[in-house]
Amino acid sequence: MQCDYFDAGVCRSCTLMGVEYDAQLAGKVAHAESLLSPWADAMWLPPMTSRPEAFRNKAKMVVGGTVDAPTLGILDGDRRGVDLRGCGVLAEGLRAALPPIAAFITLARLEPYDVPARRGELKNVLLTESPDGRLMLRFVLRSTESLARIRKHLPALLDALPQLAVVSVNLLPEHKAVLEGEVEVPLTADESLAMRLDDVVLHLRPGSFFQTNTDVAADLYHQARAWVDELAPASVWDLYCGVGGFALHVAGPGRRVLGIETSAPAVESARLSAAEAGLADVAFEVGDATAVGGADAPDAVIVNPPRRGLGPELCATLEASSVGAVVYSSCNAVSLARDLAAMPSLRPRRIRVFDMFPQTEHYEVMVLLERVS
């Protein structure tokens, strides 16, 4: 893939830009194989590939420039805005929506936040696209000062972008390097974006986690479903379940599924999806993933932790439990290898790399572990 921004040196976020895709993929597989070499008897399945461009379903754009000439992209070394509206890894629907959003910033007089001066209101624009082309838009603001103007001019934006399903304002009053704050103000009747993946519909609320690459996320869910169906467990727990992607995909007749997640809004979304699908044996709870274990431990567990991995406590809990199998989906093979070493009774049987993030060194890897006596 060729990128004018990368060639000009204005954005180097895609560290593998210009490297042939096959070489990128081979490097990721080699990296995973090196880290997971202590489990040499595991079967490696062929890597799951991605489109090398236009694969990202979300745009996290820092707002810079001025009210009359806003930039949507990143900040340079001097903390000034660099416009990246033509970024080639963004889905086409996202790129097409960015110019009308920039025009709305001018119309509603949303002053971009000046990081060096600590002045201004609009910090970030967060945009997500569903598989059917619907959009969720979030304006990250310093305060509610411009909220009335956004509401006043919102009809014009909805006319310009009829695919907008969810619009909200997120409040981030602090001066710190994060994308969003804790307070969300809905501006549309719909507060969740429906993400349809074949026979499963996930409801994504503002701030909820969903994989960056929709096609590869579907591949992840399908692989987990295939492995779980093969094992045929009567009970499954999905830890770090988010909006319920894995839990809803592995649900089936006679199988009890429980998803556990710390985010209450994500759990609410997952419950809505389960109810719409009529899945009476699927439940979701707000709680700590380390609660698994004891006499009520399930037959199988799915884990999809953040980059830091499961950590010593949960690894020890799983190791000491009666759980017979674990499907581990990881975005960091370094922490994955550390966690696997901490659970010697759960032996990796199959491993597969999923290229969730083309043009970068990052990837997902999924491992099927089964308990050995």
Rank of each mutant, 00 (worst) to 15 (best):
E313F: 07
V301W: 04
F284T: 02
E276G: 13
E285I: 03
E261P: 01
T317I: 02
L272P: 04
W237D: 11
C315Q: 06
E276K: 15
R308A: 15
E319L: 09
I260A: 02
A266P: 02
H249V: 05
C241I: 07
C315K: 05
G311I: 08
R255G: 02
S235D: 10
S269K: 10
L248D: 03
G324A: 14
S329Y: 11
A291Y: 06
S263F: 00
R255E: 07
S273L: 11
V326M: 10
G245H: 00
S329D: 13
L258S: 06
S330K: 04
G294T: 08
Y240L: 06
S269Y: 07
A289R: 04
L258M: 13
D288S: 12
C241E: 05
A320F: 05
V257L: 08
V250K: 01
L310E: 09
L279N: 08
R307C: 07
D296L: 12
V267Y: 05
L310W: 06
E268N: 14
A316S: 13
A320T: 12
D296R: 13
A320K: 13
R308T: 14
N332K: 10
S235N: 07
E276F: 13
A234T: 13
V250W: 01
G254S: 11
A325I: 09
G254M: 08
E261F: 00
Y328Q: 03
P265E: 09
L318Y: 08
D288P: 08
R308W: 12
A300W: 01
V292D: 01
I260F: 02
P312N: 12
S263A: 10
N304S: 13
V292E: 02
L239S: 02
S273A: 15
V326N: 05
P265D: 11
G278K: 13
L310A: 10
G254P: 07
